[in-house]
Design a protein around this nucleic acid. Structure first.
Lengths: 228, 228
DNA sequence: GTTTGTTTTTACGATCTGTAACATCACGAA
DNA sequence: TTCGTGATGTTACAGATCGTAAAAACAAAC
C-alpha cells in the first residue's frame, strides 16, 4: 500500500520506512506540515502516519486540514508521546482513526497497519468479499462486475481498476496512486493510460445512465467514484 | 480556523496562540488597536479575541470600529479583568458575542472557541447541508448550483468559491482568506485569480439580474456576497 | 507467422485556469 | 475640486489538462 509519513526525526522516519517497506509497502516521508500538505495536494495515499510534534504546523493542524480540505476518508494513525493523554483525545476527535505512542515498536506498528490494510480489503485475495452497491455488484471470487444483474464484459485491467475504485468510494485518487495500485508501476506519470481506462469504464458501467453515480475527474489530481 | 488576537501582553498572547495552534487554528496577533485595525483592513478572520486594555485604542473602541466599519458578523470574544463588570455590559452592547475574564484558562478558552467554531459549521463535515437562498440553491451532495431552478454550469473551482461565499454570506472575505480556503494556497497574494473568478461568478450567477443580491468588492480588502 | 484480444500511445478537440492587458473606478493628496 | 496612483472589472488568450476515438504496440494462442 501507499503510506505517507509526517515525521521530522530522520532516524525515526527511516525506522518506520524500513519496517513498512520490508512488509511490501511504498512509503513517502515529509518532514514538516507544509511539505506534507503540498504533497497531499498532488497525490493520494492509503494510510497516513502523523507525528504530533513537527515543525511548521502541528500534526493536529495537519490532520484538521487533511480532513476538511483534502481527504476525510483515508485512515490516519497518530503518533504521540506516551504521556500526552489529552493529545490522544484531541487527535481522535479531529478524525484520527488510531494512535500509537512513542517509542514506536515493530510489532505494534505492523499490527496497526495490517489491521487497517485488512479493513480496507487490501489483505491477500482471501478476502472473498463481495460488493453490492445497487445497481452495481462485484463478485471478487469470479472477478465479475454486473449492472442491474447484467454481467459487464471486462478485461483484467478494467476489473482491477473498477475494484479499486469501489474500494475507495468517495475518495479522490491520484493518477499516481492508481498507476501504482492497479498497474504496479511507480513513477511513469506521463501516460494517459489511466484516463483511457476511466473513459472506457464510464461507458461499460453506464455511469451516465445512473442518476446517483458519478465517476468524475478532479482537475490536476485524479478521479473519484461516488454514490450520491 | 483563522483567529486574530488583540493583546499587548506578549506572554499572554503567546499562551493563547500556543493553545489555539495546538488545536489546529491559525493565529495572528497584534499588540495595539491601530495595528489590529490596519491588519483587519487587509484581511479577514473567523474569530476575533479582543483584550480590553491595550495601548493606543481601547478594546471597546476597536470593537466599535470593527462593527461599524469592518465586519459586523465575525464573532468577537472580549477579554477583560475579572472585576470590571460594567465593561462586560458595554462590550456586549457594542456587539461582542462572548467574553472571558483574566486570567484566561485553557479549558475555558478552548470551550468558547470551539463553541463558536461549531456554531459556524467548522466543526465536522456538515457537507450534507444544502443551501436555499432564493433564487439560489446549492446542492452540496451533487455540487450543483441553480438559479431559479436552472442548473448553472460550473467548474470545480467556481463551485468551491460559490459555496464558500454562501457560507460567509454578508461577510467581507479577504483575498488571502479566499486563496487559503478555496485554493489551498497560503502566501501568493500577488495574483488576480480571485478577481477573475469572482467576475466569472457574477456572470454565471446572473447577480446583476437579481435586484436583491450583490457580489461587491471592498476596496483593498476582498469581496462580499450579500442579500439586501 | 497469423490471429485475436488486450493494453498503451497518439491525436485532437474541448475544457479548465491563471495571467496579461486595458479600461474603469476608488481613494487620498494637493 | 482635480489629479495621480493603484485597485478592480472584464475580456482575451495561452498553457495545461481531460475525454474519447482510433491507431499502434503488445501478448498469448493457434
Amino acid at each position: 500500500m501507499r503510506i505517507v509519513i509526517l515525521e521530522d526525526d530522520r532516524d525515526q522516519a527511516d525506522l518506520l520506512v524500513a519496517w513498512l517497506e520490508e512488509a511490501g509497502h511504498q512509503c513517502a516521508v515529509y518532514g514538516d506540515g507544509n511539505a506534507f500538505i503540498r504533497a497531499y495536494n498532488q497525490d493520494s495515499y492509503d494510510i497516513v502516519l502523523l507525528d504530533w510534534m513537527v515543525p511548521n504546523l502541528s500534526g493536529l493542524e495537519v490532520l484538521k486540514h487533511l480532513r476538511s480540505h483534502l481527504d476525510n476518508i483515508v485512515p490516519v494513525v497518530f503518533i504521540t508521546q506516551r504521556d500526552a493523554e489529552e493529545d490522544i483525545v484531541k487527535a481522535l476527535e479531529a478524525g484520527a482513526d488510531d494512535y500509537m505512542t512513542k517509542p514506536v515498536r515493530h510489532r505494534e506498528t505492523m499490527a496497526r497497519v495490517n489491521s487497517i490494510a485488512r479493513r480496507m480489503g487490501f489483505g491477500d485475495d482471501n478476502t472473498s468479499e463481495n460488493y453490492d452497491f445497487p445497481p452495481y455488484k462485484l463478485d471478487t471470487k469470479l472477478r465479475h462486475v454486473s449492472v442491474n444483474d447484467d454481467l459487464v464484459e471486462m478485461t483484467q485491467k478494467e476489473y482491477e481498476l473498477t475494484l479499486f475504485l469501489f474500494k475507495n468510494l468517495g475518495r479522490v485518487i491520484s493518477r499516481g496512486h492508481l498507476l501504482e495500485m492497479v498497474w504496479g508501476t511507480s513513477s511513469k506519470l506521463n501516460t494517459r493510460t489511466v484516463d483511457t481506462h476511466i473513459s472506457r469504464l464510464r461507458t461499460k458501467l453506464k455511469i451516465e445512465a445512473q442518476d446517483n453515480w458519478q465517476l468524475t475527474s478532479v482537475y490536476r489530481h485524479g478521479y473519484r467514484l461516488e454514490q450520491i
